[in-house]
């Protein structure tokens, strides 16, 4: 068994005429937390969907656990997906079911466990995210942070090998942000998961990631452990990490020269 769980090789993907990725390479090491950072709108979520097989790349390989995802048949893809799970930005809890049923959903769909055992597993998973007491609530009654934790319990219900977090910190208050940071780290260590975190929250990501990729301009522009990355000479990486308004990524959306457009008025 190799150390690399997800191996992305020479990936190119475009949406319509707009290229998103060009010739990108990336590896996710088993048992580690790998973070993918980058400015908004560069298709970080798209990358997770590509790994999950919901989108097909134009070219390149996405190897998950020895299987090249884009070439799998539908049935094989569904089999592969049982070994991965994804935590969506919104949580994506099923609104028509209680928290308990949400967590039980993958178990009921994919296993033939007796109801008593399902209950046991669900309570265990809910306990690990601290929501055992909230099992009878409906998703609409949960706060944003709680919904995300409930969704996390659902994501680990089948004990996947890979868990992908799509912007887990976005729109969270400091306390629930702290809770989620702790959960990602703890679950990764306790369950032997491999985690991929997609985010643009630099501080949180740098605190939990073992390895970080910075993606911009359709490809990887910097990578390494958080320490290595802080020492990265690339101005783009530095601008992103420090959050400077202007720099390698210009403040202004590309436009004609300002003076010229002003002059047009006086013509």
């Amino acid at each position: 068994m190799s150390d690399v769980l997800v191996d992305i090789q020479n990936l190119s993907f475009s949406r319509g005429d707009r290229p998103i990725y060009r010739d990108m390479n990336m590896q996710v090491i088993r048992g580690k937390v790998t973070a993918i950072m980058g400015p908004s709108g560069i298709g970080k979520t798209t990358l997770l969907r590509l790994i999950g097989g919901q989108l097909k790349p134009d070219s390149g390989k996405i190897v998950f656990d020895g299987l090249n995802i884009p070439t799998l048949s539908r049935a094989e893809l569904y089999q592969a997906r049982k070994k991965m799970s994804m935590l969506f930005q919104s949580g994506a809890l099923f609104t028509e079911m209680s928290v308990f049923d949400n967590v039980a959903f993958p178990l009921r769909e994919h296993t033939r466990l007796p109801e008593a055992l399902i209950r046991l597993v669900v309570l265990m998973k809910l306990e690990s995210v601290g929501l055992r007491g909230a099992r009878d609530l409906m998703p609409a009654e949960l706060s944003g942070g709680m919904a995300r934790r409930a969704a996390l319990a659902r994501a680990i219900a089948l004990d996947p090998e890979l868990i992908m977090y799509d912007e887990p910190f976005a729109g969270q208050d400091p306390i629930s942000m702290g809770v989620i940071v702790r959960l990602i780290r703890e679950l990764n260590n306790a369950l032997g998961l491999t985690s991929v975190v997609v985010s643009h929250d630099v501080t949180e990501v740098m605190s939990i990631a073992d390895y970080v990729y910075v993606v911009a301009d359709k490809t990887v522009i910097g990578q390494g452990t958080p320490e290595q990355l802080r020492a990265d000479p690339s101005p783009l990486v530095q601008q992103f990490l420090k959050g400077e308004a202007d720099g390698a990524v210009p403040f202004h959306y590309k436009a004609a020269a300002y003076e010229d457009e002003l002059m047009e008025l006086t013509k």
């Binding site: 969907r49 999950g52 919901q54 569904y78 089999q79 997906r81 049982k82 991965m84 799970s85 994804m86 969506f88 930005q89 919104s90 994506a92 809890l93 099923f94 609104t95 959903f105 993958p106 769909e109 994919h110 969704a151 089948l158």
Partner: peptide, 17 residues
């Protein structure tokens, strides 16, 4: 709404069609 709140995507990722 299920689509907008990613419930359909989520289901797909849970290997449920």
């Amino acid at each position: 709404l299920m689509k907008a709140t990613e419930q359909l995507s989520g289901m797909e990722m849970m290997a449920v069609d």
